[in-house]
Design a protein around this nucleic acid. Sequence first.
RNA 1: GCUGAAGUAGCUCAGCUGGUAGAGCAGCGGUUUCGUAAACCGCAGGUCGUGGGUUCAAAUCCCACCUUCAGCUCCA
Length: 633
Amino acid sequence: MVKAKLPDNSILEVDSSTPAIEVAKRISRSLAEDALAVKINGKISDLNTPITGDCEVKFLTFDDPEGREVYWHSSSHLMAHAILSLFPEAKFGVGPAIEDGFYYDIDINKTLSPADLEAIEKKMHELADNNEPFVRKVVQKDEALKFFKEKKDPYKVEIIGALDGTITFYSEGEFTDLCRGPHAPSAGKLKYFKLLGTSGAYWRGDSKNKMLQRVYGVSFPKKKMLDDHLKMLEEAKLRDHRRLGRELELFVFHDIAPGAPFWLPKGMVIFRELEKFIREELDSRGYLEISTPMLVKKDLWEQSGHWDHYKQNMFVLDVEEETYSLKPMNCPESTYVYKHRTRSYRDLPLRLAEIGRLHRNEISGALGGMFRVRQITMDDAHIYLRPDQIVDEINDLIDFINKVYRIFKFEPSYNLSTKPDDAMGDPKLWEQAEASLKKALDKNGIKYGLKEKDGAFYGPKIDIQIKDAIGRDWQVATIQLDFVMLPERFDLTYIDADGTAKRPVAIHRAIFGSFERFVGILTEHYAGAFPTWLSPVQVAVLPITDSFNEYGKSVVDALLKENVRVELDDRNEKVGYKIREWETRKVPYMLVVGQKEKDSGTVSIRKHREGDKGATQLAEFVSSIKKEIVEKT
RNA sequence: GCUGAAGUAGCUCAGCUGGUAGAGCAGCGGUUUCGUAAACCGCAGGUCGUGGGUUCAAAUCCCACCUUCAGCUCCA
């Protein structure tokens, strides 16, 4: 008998060599039904893996991220099986589970059409109905090579050639694939699939290699889960900022300037509100705003190192015998502000903020709406400080970042990236800096992920991700410590209390990242229905007929006096028509005015998506909307 | 940059195998004066992404370029 310890700390005694699935059956029938794989002492294995000694056992279902991975991985095998039975000449690359589903890279002399995908999907259902088990088999390397050489599958042969140790095959029905596993017990567990599309992908991600076709799919054990997932994808499409940006007249793109938006008046209102907000915060937190030249000689970039490492992303131009570049980053030039006079330890931290226009020559294929542009406006800052000031400063930055994101109802999550192998600078400084970052995160009670060796060569960093209204993650803010790039390369010093010159540390940080990208994210996050403080038009006043235009005008004037962004809709249209239009423009408040309102000095409030809220005294509405704007709720 | 798909009116789209463009919405002009998501009538609007080629004839076929979209990082 051996003891299996379950996640709830209970112990189950079973005969040695009992397959894990039998343990699941003893726990509950539904668990045995839902289980996809098992984690034995932390190692994920197939359900029929025998339990040979005392161990901790956890069964993985679709509810566990690791269970989903198994599910999707098995689905990708099932898809490969279906593809092979429809297209026997297909050769296979790799087919892993990914964050939201799975894919398989295939080599086939035909571009797969949507109709092909449907056929594959149908075949997958047939194969799933056969409910063949996934069978694991350990094979010798030469045996494995022989198998795939006979199948004339060069990709698998290449993979096996690079493998050491145990090689395993998995078979499901007549389909056998090289695979580390583990897999779901049988194909029948795989119920609802949707193949989402195809794209090109180079073998091993290298553009020198042949391009394979990557088929993407997603699968779920319950129909509702698949439906919900597809609905979410639809929802994301409806929220597409490129479409909303045009419809709501925020910004447009034109062939004449690829990768750069034309900000329309309404979009510019949002831009300016964000700028105003961030400037108020900067002012209250001791930042000093600067503005540095956009066009500078290449000498600057040679000194900073960008000329060697970043030149392909820079716009370079020749002006009167000299080579210039549009700045792709603000950091090097901020050192000129630092250095324009001798700095004392009393000046530190010196927080230099710059809301600067940057130009980066992104390769054409990478451009995409506001998310990837060639011209960006960054809410950048460079903070110069003494090493002993790091903890306090990071602490303030975390507070700053949390405050900003709370306003937008984003959930931030933090990742700390530590010293990479090719790091520069004093190892002691690195140690101290990483400890400072950890201390600041802990002090704020922040749970964070650790990305070992993922820091920049010049210092460790904290990256902040946010989760939007439909659960998507975005990388936005960053806090990077820098001992080398700015301090060393630009030979920055301050005079310490003892009269000697010392080297400061620099912090690069951004909170929105870029205004362009951030406005794109906000547009999708709010699905275009911006909160009142950001909304380009905050109130629309709708007189019922033109005999109330005058009263409407007086309402507009009262709001204008309080700096509310208001428009009077005095067109010759029925009120239903006006309401429909302002609803589609996602304006937060509509004020309907007619005889009743005129007589009583009131307005009838209609809130976006909520409908009629009844009549209120004008003065009361003015003070409540002002409160809402000031509090950014 | 690479692979694939696409580009027709401000927007969404129709226009089959070649015979020189059409709808809805938006816009403009009128009629209507109306109480919470679309009143009615009329008008105007396009070098069919750009350039070249084939043809008696090209939105349609061919080539090049531009732009956009999906992907090119997830590693049996």
